[in-house]
Design a protein around this nucleic acid. Structure first.
Length: 712
DNA sequence: AGCACGCCGACT
DNA sequence: GTCGGCGTGCTC
């Protein structure tokens, strides 16, 4: 009887491949090892997921493992079983996840450069090369280029097959170099705030309960809700009573900026390690040395921290658990929260979800299971008011006076705007026609009246329409104004004041410089989008204005209210909570309950209202909802695939209600289109079966890019 | 993903 | 009749 093993490669292939283990390796290779194996015409490194003995060779021809490769991450068998389950639930390749988990390897990127040989040069000058080959060689004249650059420049899709032929003919040289690629860290390290408020009796008891569960080594999940300052003091207490033992504690945050506030609450700084993708190689090595030596057992990081191969992990904390960034992230599509949950299950650890605005479903299920601790919110003592109307209100009457007064008193102002750029769109004053991008079918945005319009997704520009193409009337800028509009209007209203716009992709002062300038009163006004919220923390303002937060309430998403509530209540954290500070919301929907509750903020009130709506409309937590995204090279092939999928779903799961499909844009790659649909089930009973069905479907159509996200 | 294979139009 | 551009399908 010979030994065989199942190998998964870091390729987008769900299936594993069977190899025979040669005599020399039988006693050396174990589950979790990295091996080199022949795969088609190449040699690839993959991960061993299983080792087995077989009576006879399988029906297909089996190749032999070439060699064992040393991977210092050394995945244990239990870690592999965790990865296998996560991969199956996420519809991704186990090999890709393991590749991500392999943190100890200095992540080496092979940099490929192509250059012209002497012969290539000569042949090119003789002029006996034509077509695309000539095009490539011309570009390479006198310089080295990467295949990616050549691909972009020439538009040739299969650039590699061209390069291979050119290399075979001796016209180009392809050199490969191992490069260590790391960006520099941008995280502000110096935050120190002391919060020393005593814990309440229930809080202290709750902490004891979690500590007991951690010690008993049983998997349980808790949800800790409440304002950050209350949670901070709670977790500071919890962490310091658990740290210093031989177990690891992982703290997950949705984005790097969010780490700062956890950094400051850890009392035993020497136990804390920060681990994320933007560390320099030196910082990274140092962090790993401290982790593996056991000197530091408290690790703070983003989503992929759930895959950190350290053991045993006794506690995982997921901060801002409602944040979409846990699943809408570049790279391999997996849900960070789900990964943390599975990890905790596999290691018999405790999972603590926490947020100031938990997902409605999380709150519901935890309240039902009596694993919820709601620490509540601070009472806001500032003056707040809701003003009816559009954003331009802030330049009129009393709001204008308030703004001017504030600036005159040299107190900084924060203005929260929902939109980047100048204004949302351009509109005909009479027939309300809105020009759209021919390619993307979204409203074109304007950076300035009279100047050209551009598409936020594809970047294509269009001339300013002098007249409405439908009715001939003059066009004007739409009512929804963006950050740049406010900046310009404010600059006109208050000359000689410094105004900063904090939004994604915009040039603004370095964080440290910004904080310094604000506390030193050098900057008077900050106009910011959602992007600004995490970056301004822990600064507070005595005047905060919110402009049209109702945008987003009408998004076709069952979580629209939840997300608007979360964002708006996050703004309240920037209001200095003292007498005399002001929080002003200008909105078209002054009576909207979601907005009203968000500014207090009253999460519990919002929850009670929202849960009724969910019940009425049949959304999670009452009916599980699954979102499926299909994307591919061409919309045509994705459409074909979606038809096949829909047909099979209807046949196998007639009880599921299918919402969609509709063509949408990729959240990350706006240029890429995808087919998106939702599936609503009446109950959870067949959910697992459904995920298995999707897995089999993807296995069959292996070229498809299919991802899913489920809400229970 | 990345590679080989094989089909079809363009050009000696 | 050959070359090369591009789509299709397979990888234990």
């Amino acid at each position: 009887m010979a030994y065989y093993c199942e190998v998964s490669f870091p390729l987008p292939l769900l299936q594993t491949f069977t190899y025979r283990l040669p005599e020399s390796l039988v006693n050396r290779v174990k589950v979790g090892d990295k091996v080199l194996a022949p795969f088609g015409s190449r040699q690839l490194a993959g991960y061993v997921l299983e080792i087995k003995q077989l009576e006879q060779e399988p029906a297909f021809k089996v190749k032999e493992i070439t060699d064992l490769r040393v991977n210092s991450s050394s995945f244990s068998a239990s870690f592999i079983s965790f990865i296998k389950e996560l991969a199956r639930k996420s519809l991704v390749s186990p090999g890709q996840l393991l590749d991500l988990a392999e943190v100890y390897e200095d992540q080496e990127v092979i940099k490929v450069m192509v250059k012209l040989t002497a012969e290539g040069q000569a042949r090119l000058e003789r002029g006996d090369i034509k077509g695309r080959k000539k095009e490539i060689l011309e570009l390479l004249k006198g310089r080295k280029l990467s295949p990616v650059y050549l691909k972009r420049k020439t538009g040739i899709k299969n650039i590699n097959s061209y390069l291979r032929v050119l290399k075979k003919d001796g016209l180009v040289d392809i050199e490969e170099k191992q490069v260590k690629k790391r960006k520099s860290s941008s995280i502000n390290q110096e935050v120190k705030i002391q919060l020393q408020l005593p814990l309440s009796l229930t809080e202290a008891q709750e902490i004891k309960q979690i500590i007991r569960k951690v010690r008993e080594k049983v998997y349980v999940e808790f949800l800790v809700a409440g304002s950050w300052s209350r949670r901070a003091r709670y977790f500071s207490e919890l962490i310091s009573s658990l740290v210093g033992q031989s177990n690891y504690i992982l703290i997950l945050v949705p984005e790097i900026q969010r780490m700062r506030r956890w950094q400051e609450l850890v009392k035993q700084q020497e136990e804390l390690v920060i681990f994320h993708s933007q560390l320099t190689p030196t910082q990274r090595r140092e962090a790993l040395r401290r982790i593996s030596s056991g000197r530091a057992r408290l690790i703070l990081g983003t989503r992929s921290l759930a895959l950190m191969p350290v053991e045993p992990v006794s506690l995982i904390i997921v901060d801002e658990e409602q944040d979409e960034l846990y699943y809408q992230t570049e790279g391999i599509p997996f849900d960070g929260k789900e990964a943390a949950r599975l990890r905790a299950k596999h290691e018999n650890g405790v999972l603590v979800l926490t947020s100031s605005c938990p997902e409605i479903s999380s709150y519901y299920w935890h309240e039902k299971a009596e694993t919820l601790l709601d620490l509540g919110q601070e009472k806001m003592v500032c003056d707040y008011q809701v003003q009816s109307g559009e954003g331009t209100q802030i330049f009129r009457s009393e709001l204008k006076d308030k703004l001017i007064d504030q600036v005159r008193e040299r107190k900084p102002v924060f203005i929260y705007v929902n939109k980047k750029g100048y204004a949302g769109y351009v509109q005909c004053a009479r027939c309300h026609f809105v020009p759209k991008c021919q390619q993307c079918q979204i409203a074109l945005s304007s950076n300035k009246p009279g100047q050209e319009l551009s598409c936020r997704y594809c970047g294509k520009t269009y001339p300013w329409p002098e007249k409405c193409p439908v009715c001939g009337q003059k066009m004007r800028v739409g009512r929804v104004k963006g950050s740049q509009y406010f900046k310009e209007e404010l600059a006109a209203l208050l000359p000689d004041t410094r105004i900063v716009v904090l939004e994604e992709g915009n040039d603004h002062p370095e964080e440290r410089a910004l904080h310094k300038a604000l506390s030193g009163r050098k900057i008077s006004i900050v106009v910011g989008t959602e992007y600004a919220l995490t970056r301004l923390w822990p600064l507070t303002f005595s005047l905060v204005l919110v402009v049209n937060p109702e945008i987003g309430l009408n998004l076709p998403d069952f979580r629209a209210s939840e997300m608007v509530f979360a964002k708006l209540s996050a703004v309240t954290e920037l209001v200095a909570n003292e007498k005399g500070s002001q929080f002003i919301v200008v909105t078209e929907l002054p009576d909207n309950a979601v907005l009203r509750l968000a500014i207090i903020p009253d999460y519990r009130g919002f929850y009670e209202r929202e849960i009724e709506i969910r019940k009425l409309l049949g959304y999670p937590p009452f009916c599980p909802l699954i979102n499926i995204n299909l994307s591919g090279n061409s919309i045509r092939s994705s459409a074909r695939l979606s038809r096949a999928l829909l047909e099979q779903m209807q046949k196998n799961f007639p009880e599921a209600e299918i919402i969609g499909p509709k063509v949408a844009r990729h959240f990350w790659h706006h240029q890429r289109k995808e087919i998106r649909f939702y599936l609503r089930f009446k109950e959870q009973s067949r959910l697992e079966e459904f995920i298995n069905f999707l897995y089999e479907f993807k296995l069959k159509y292996s070229s498809s890019r299919l991802s899913l996200k489920f809400w229970l």
